[in-house]
């Protein structure tokens, strides 16, 4: 079990007792770069991601991060170090500044402006009502909010699924920039073009099980048609 931000899932089963969504998951997620979780709808990608942030616990098996079982971490500390952004960005009532304060209550104006700049948002948005942001702005604001906890890992659950192509590109560039700065990213996507643009490493899920794992080149060469289809090689 290696340290350095890697996740290790050991015989993990998750979902509803008696009708699990994930079964017999044994996989290691590298602690660097962008790992894309791919697979058809209903494969269990979101369930998988929620386990890593400990919003849910597995029914069986154990998950390790940095060599330590997730159940041994204080959940609030774990979630600040393994941050998560959702497909539908949860916007709290109030301004963008007030949304940032949820993650960091005593945030300075300078820090707030800096983090907005980091995610490519205009400083003028700081006092704007969060609910009036466009889809792309809202998602980047949520990334900014998550970054305030200075995470080692960012989990992104289909963060561009509801965005237009311009907004999607900005969020992808942000992801690449974060990965370049040392934040490990686990990115759920069923968009094979996006997967091919972003992935340093791919995990293909199908029917609640890991179908394949490896680099894009390795999976392109797979003899499994479902795997090749999931990574856009067909």
């Amino acid at each position: 079990m290696s340290a350095s931000n890697a996740f290790v899932l050991d015989h993990v089963e998750a979902g509803i007792p008696g009708d699990p969504i994930l079964r017999s998951i044994d996989v290691t997620i590298p602690g660097t770069g962008i790992t894309v979780l791919a697979g058809p709808s209903g494969a269990g990608k979101t369930t998988f991601l929620r386990l890593l942030n400990r919003l849910d616990d597995p029914l069986r098996g154990e998950i390790y991060w940095n060599g330590r079982a997730l159940s041994d971490w204080d959940p609030t500390e774990l979630r600040r170090r393994v941050a998560m952004v959702f497909q539908r960005p949860p916007l709290f009532p109030g301004s963008v500044c007030e949304n940032l304060q949820v993650a960091l209550p005593d945030i300075s104006n300078e820090r707030a402006l800096h983090v907005l700049e980091h995610v490519g948002l205009d400083a003028d948005l700081l006092d704007q009502e969060a609910t009036t942001l466009s889809g792309g702005e809202a998602q980047r604001m949520c990334v900014a909010r998550a970054l305030l906890t200075e995470p080692d890992v960012l989990l992104a659950d289909e963060p561009t699924a509801a965005l237009d192509s311009a907004a999607r590109q900005k969020v992808e560039e942000l992801g690449e920039s974060l990965a370049g700065s040392g934040v490990a990213i686990v990115w759920v996507s069923h968009d094979t073009d996006q997967l091919r643009r972003l992935a340093d490493h791919v995990i293909v899920l199908a029917d609640g099980m890991v179908r394949a794992t490896g680099t894009l080149a390795e999976l392109d060469a797979s003899e499994d048609a479902i795997v090749r289809q999931s990574v856009g090689a067909i």
Binding site: R79, A83, F86, P93, V102, R145, T149
Partner: peptide, 20 residues
């Protein structure tokens, strides 16, 4: 639920996430 889990995911305790 999405707002509550959004706060939990930011590392807030359950009582803080549910306070509003």
């Amino acid at each position: 639920r999405d707002l509550i889990e959004g706060r939990l995911a930011l590392g807030l305790s359950a009582s803080d996430a549910y306070k509003p």
